[in-house]
Amino acid sequence: MGFKLLSKLLVYLTASIMAIASPLAFSVDSSGEYPTVSEIPVGEVRLYQIADGVWSHIATQSFDGAVYPSNGLIVRDGDELLLIDTAWGAKNTAALLAEIEKQIGLPVTRAVSTHFHDDRVGGVDVLRAAGVATYASPSTRRLAEVEGNEIPTHSLEGLSSSGDAVRFGPVELFYPGAAHSTDNLIVYVPSASVLYGGCAIYELSRTSAGNVADADLAEWPTSIERIQQHYPEAQFVIPGHGLPGGLDLLKHTTNVVKAHTNRSVVE
């Protein structure tokens, strides 16, 4: 069995187990497998329904001669939608809004960016022009300005110390501490036991640490421990890039980060 097929099978099995364990909360999309990078042309966006009122959005972007996937989250909030992270750029984010209108038909009224990198804030200006209120932590807003990236308009308070959590509509926002970046936030959907790890969490097929220019490698494993301790009931975990899975993604990420750190020390 090929690795790609095995990865998709694991996603399907995880979703099936969740649907059985929580039949009222989960209505997993039966329309197909989780979209992969090879299936999404740059400039297009796919939506994948995880649970009743919960979707991931998947886009792709060219970077350094390669094409990478990027995940975000959409959560229903009454007759409105909360968006977590842009679709990595203005063109993708405009396509995301169009796809949401086509498939869901509810307005996106608020959006949260989970850290300051372009795959999370690139497209904020498109959201703002569409009347979406954009939010991020003060740290993310400051770092985005320093980096020359787009800056969300509103500040999220109460997320300055490791372990801080605040309720934001249908989700809980959690600051686990520094990891992929010093400002990275985690998003949890309690009604569906869905954990969105953003770039602080890796997919299972990833074996290298990737972009760690703004990471705190020493603190990252401790931050992941905080996530595990705060959300032990999480059933569906979405990484910032690639295929979702279960809580095993947290341990896998820790292993990859520690291996990278150990290699760096040896070198």
Score class of each variant (00 low, 15 high):
Ala209Ser: 12
Gly131Trp: 08
Thr134Leu: 11
Gly72Met: 00
Leu10Pro: 06
Ile151Pro: 02
Gln49Phe: 08
Ala111Ile: 05
Ser56Asp: 04
Phe168Ala: 05
Gly158Lys: 13
Val108Thr: 04
Ser160Thr: 11
Asp29His: 05
Asp125Leu: 12
Thr254Met: 06
Asp216Leu: 08
Glu80Gln: 07
Pro138Arg: 11
Ser193His: 11
His230Asn: 05
Ala15Thr: 04
Arg110His: 14
Ala178Ser: 04
Thr60Arg: 08
Ile40Asp: 09
Gln228Ile: 02
Ala144Thr: 10
Leu81Ser: 11
Leu13Val: 13
Val37Leu: 08
His154Arg: 04
Asn184Met: 01
Tyr135Asp: 00
Asp118Cys: 14
Ala25Tyr: 05
Asp64Ala: 09
Val266Pro: 12
Pro107Trp: 06
Ser139Ala: 09
Gly105Glu: 15
Ile84Asn: 02
Ile227Met: 15
Gly177Ser: 01
Tyr175Leu: 11
Ile201Phe: 15
Gly32Glu: 11
Gln61Arg: 07
Ala129Glu: 10
Val171Ile: 05
Ser205Arg: 08
Val37Phe: 06
Val237Gly: 02
Glu101Trp: 14
Gly197Ser: 03
Pro176Thr: 02
Leu81Val: 08
Glu39Trp: 07
Thr86Lys: 01
His252Gly: 09
Lys8Tyr: 14
Gln49Ala: 09
Glu233Phe: 12
Glu157Met: 11
Pro232Gly: 08
Asp52Arg: 08
Gln61Cys: 09
Val237Asn: 01
Leu127Lys: 01
Ile40His: 03
Thr254Asp: 11
Thr261Trp: 10
Leu81Glu: 01
Ala209Val: 06
Ser181Asp: 00
Ser16Gly: 07
Pro35Thr: 03
Gly148Pro: 13
Trp220Glu: 02
Ser70Ile: 15
Leu173Ser: 01
Pro170His: 13
Ser205Gln: 09
Ile100Glu: 02
Ala19Phe: 04
Ala130Phe: 12
Glu203Ala: 03
Ser160His: 14
Ala144Ser: 12
Val194Pro: 00
Val189Asn: 05
Thr182Lys: 05
Tyr68Ala: 09
Leu185Pro: 00
Arg142Cys: 15
Leu83Phe: 05
Glu99Ser: 15
Leu249Gly: 02
Pro138Asn: 15
Ala259Met: 05
Ala218Gly: 08
Ile50Ser: 13
Val132Glu: 00
Ile100Cys: 04
Ile238Thr: 13
Leu106Glu: 13
Phe3Val: 09
Asp118Met: 03
Gly43Cys: 03
Ser161Ile: 07
Asn71Leu: 03
Leu106Trp: 11
Val212Lys: 09
Gly53Ser: 08
Thr114Met: 02
Ile58Ala: 06
Val54Tyr: 04
Arg141Asn: 15
Pro170Ile: 15
Val11Met: 12
Asp77Leu: 07
Leu97Asn: 02
Glu39Arg: 07
Ala209Thr: 05
Ala95Gly: 08
Gln228Arg: 12
Val189Cys: 05
Glu44Lys: 04
Phe236Lys: 08
Ala218Glu: 05
Pro170Ala: 05
Pro107Phe: 02
Leu143Tyr: 11
Ala192Tyr: 05
Thr207His: 06
Val108Ala: 09
Ser208Thr: 12
Pro152Trp: 13
Asp214Asn: 14
Arg120Ala: 14
Tyr202Gln: 03
Asp119Lys: 00
Thr140Ile: 11
Ala21Val: 14
Leu173Thr: 12
Pro170Gln: 04
Ile17Cys: 03
Asp248Lys: 14
Arg142Met: 11
Arg128Lys: 11
Ile224Tyr: 01
Leu127Pro: 01
Thr140Gln: 02
Glu147Asn: 10
Leu250His: 09
Ser113Gln: 09
Leu24Cys: 06
Asp85Gly: 02
Leu204Glu: 03
Ala87Ile: 01
Gly245Trp: 08
Ile100Met: 10
Leu5Gln: 11
Val265Gln: 12
Ser181Gln: 00
Ser30Met: 15
Ala218Tyr: 04
Gly32His: 04
Ala15Glu: 15
Tyr68Ser: 14
Ala59Arg: 12
Ile20Arg: 10
Ala87Lys: 00
Leu5Met: 04
Ala129Ser: 12
Tyr68Trp: 09
Ser27Gly: 09
Lys102Gln: 13
Asp52Gln: 03
Gln235Met: 03
Pro170Phe: 13
Gly245Ser: 05
Ala129Phe: 02
Ser38Leu: 11
Ala87Met: 02
Ile201Val: 09
Thr253Lys: 01
Val266Ile: 00
Leu195Asn: 00
Val54Gly: 01
Leu250Met: 03
Cys199Pro: 01
Gly169Asn: 08
Gly43Thr: 05
Tyr231Ala: 06
Ser31Leu: 10
Ala87Cys: 14
Glu101Val: 04
Leu173His: 01
Leu96Cys: 07
His117Met: 00
Ser193Glu: 07
Val257Ala: 10
Ala130Leu: 15
Tyr188Lys: 02
Pro176Met: 07
Asp248Pro: 05
Ser264Tyr: 02
Pro232Ile: 15
Ile186Ala: 12
Val75Trp: 00
Tyr68Asn: 10
Val54Ala: 07
His117Arg: 00
Arg110Met: 02
Gly210Pro: 07
Phe168Val: 07
Phe63Tyr: 02
Ile151Trp: 08
Ser181Asn: 01
Gly210Val: 11
His241Asn: 01
Gly210Phe: 15
Thr109Phe: 07
Ser7Ala: 08
Asn184Ile: 01
Thr36Ser: 06
Ser56Trp: 08
Asn262Thr: 05
Val256Phe: 13
Asn211Gly: 08
Ala19Trp: 14
Ile17Phe: 07
Leu9Met: 07
Ser264Asp: 08
Lys8Cys: 08
Gly246Asn: 07
His115Arg: 00
Glu44Cys: 13
Glu39Ser: 10
Val257Trp: 12
Leu13Asp: 14
Thr253Pro: 02
Trp55Cys: 02
Gly177Asn: 00
Val54Thr: 06
Asp216Thr: 09
Ser193Lys: 14
Ser139Arg: 09
Thr14Lys: 13
Val54Lys: 01
Glu80Arg: 09
Thr114Cys: 02
Lys91Ile: 07
Ala209Tyr: 05
Leu73Met: 15
Lys258Leu: 14
Gly89Val: 05
Pro23Arg: 09
Gly65Trp: 04
Thr207Cys: 05
Ser30Gly: 10
Gln229Ala: 12
Ala94Asn: 12
Leu97Gly: 04
Asn184Phe: 00
Gln229Tyr: 04
Pro221Ser: 12
Ala94Glu: 08
Leu83Gln: 07
His57Trp: 06
Asp248Val: 07
Asp164Pro: 06
Glu39Lys: 13
Val194Phe: 02
Ala200Ser: 05
Leu24Ile: 12
Gly177Asp: 00
Val108Arg: 01
Val11Ile: 06
Thr253Trp: 01
Gln103Phe: 15
Ala213Gln: 06
Arg128Leu: 06
Ala66Val: 08
Ser161Phe: 12
Gly198Pro: 01
Gly72Tyr: 00
Asp52Ser: 10
Val166Tyr: 03
His57Lys: 01
Ala111Tyr: 04
Ser30Leu: 08
Arg226Leu: 09
Asp119Arg: 01
Arg263Ala: 07
Val256Gly: 09
Arg142Ser: 13
Thr134Tyr: 04
Asn262Ser: 12
Asp64Phe: 03
Pro41Asp: 10
Gly177Arg: 00
Asp183Arg: 00
Tyr12Cys: 06
Ile20Ser: 07
Phe63Lys: 12
Ala144Lys: 13
Pro152Glu: 04
Glu147Asp: 11
Asp79Lys: 13
Thr254Ser: 10
Ala94Asp: 12
Tyr48Ala: 10
